[in-house]
Nucleic acid binder design. Structure first.
Lengths: 208, 208
DNA sequence: GAGAAAGTCGACACCGTGTCGAAAGTCGCC
DNA sequence: GGCGACTTTCGACACGGTGTCGACTTTCTC
């Protein structure tokens, strides 16, 4: 009755916990090893099922990752929705917005790092990420325009292009920081530095 | 006499062209497919040798990629060395510096995109990239400090942290643009937008 | 308690990787 | 001109992970 029995959103009454167990087992494994080094065998074992049972729930590892991505971006969007629009203290508003990404992705560091890698290869991930991040870019751009109209932001030739660049920065900074790459920002500095660059770029000064 | 016969810098007199042919065949293949989809078979065929002969020259696909990375960053460093220090027109200087990255990586788009992906998995790539980008970050940071001393740059609390963020932005913007991801900057806009964000962040204004 | 649907399992074929040992080619030197 | 050492090539093998298939079991429903 519902979609194909193998699809990832089967919403089957029972077996639902299995699906959840698989996702969690995968995330747990991801904390210690890269996706390429994790065999489906191990995910299945972590979820207490056999390897072929895994295939009943997901067509591949990548599909599990897509599920993980969905959860994370949904949470980001939910939290962003509660923030509203910039008020008297725009720096605080930007900081809060950026903080949502730092917090949500920071809670799933290994998944974030894996996502950044797998996105290049897996079309579904790539498309889903494109959809979501396009919305964030547009949100940023329209806020910049609004701030400009209020006379607070500096003159920016192409607000959309600028917001693409700023969002790209956040993404890469977070991944590098989570992945403990070098050079990378210390976890405690990420939010401060990103907010500083954003505000300076948008207003010409870090404290508008 | 030289290092191990299989290592990547064997500098063997003959067979050197083979090595080069392999590297080139790989880059060519990379233009049409992702690394994961390219079998060593095909690289070998492209270089007109057998699969096992491939292993005589390189221990793996990743090692070929490392060679490609080396070439690119070497070229970047050579070009950067000719630029000198900022003069009367600092915006032009930053633009020229960023332009080196845009140009060199732009000439090897598929390699750049592949590198960004494989770096997460391959320790050698990760380390090499870390070494190189640390130097660029330090170059950026010391230039910011120098510009501050001359009284041109704005007050920046942690110049190194800021330069990490700016360099991270460039990296991600370039990869997204080369990989035709969405949202991404159009190739023609990349240099303008990056220069704008860098200068505004460093000086408080896009045209210092 | 019969039948369909959901879930599980072991077995199989496939493909790419990396390794090994043997063969063939190349070069210098007596 | 032929001997020996080194370089290069090759075919064959074993291994490990993937995805699929058909059969078996459990569970739910009428």
């Amino acid at each position: 009755m519902t979609a194909s029995p193998r699809g990832r959103r089967a919403s089957r009454p029972s077996g639902d916990e299995r699906q959840r167990a698989i996702v969690e087992a995968f995330e747990t494994l991801l904390r210690t090893r890269a996706m390429a080094d994790i065999a489906i065998d191990e995910i299945a074992a972590g979820a207490a099922i056999s390897r072929s049972a895994f295939y009943f729930y997901f067509p591949s590892k990548q599909a599990v990752l897509l599920e993980l991505l969905d959860r994370m971006v949904t949470e980001v969007d939910e939290r962003l929705a509660t923030i509203g629009v910039p008020g008297d203290d725009p720096a605080a508003w930007w900081r809060a917005s950026i903080g949502v990404f730092v917090a949500v992705f920071g809670e799933h560091r290994s998944v974030t790092v894996t996502l950044a890698e797998a996105r290049a290869t897996v079309p579904e991930l790539r498309d889903e990420w494109a959809r979501r991040s396009t919305r964030w870019v547009e949100l940023t751009a329209s806020t910049i325009v609004a701030e400009r109209r209020r006379g607070r932001a500096r003159e920016i030739v192409d607000p959309r292009a600028t917001s693409i660049a700023l969002n790209a920065m956040n993404e890469r900074v977070l991944v590098a920081s989570f992945g403990a790459e070098l050079p990378a920002l210390a976890a405690d500095d990420v939010l401060d530095v990103l907010t500083d660059v954003w505000c300076t770029t948008i207003y010409g000064t870090p404290r508008p």
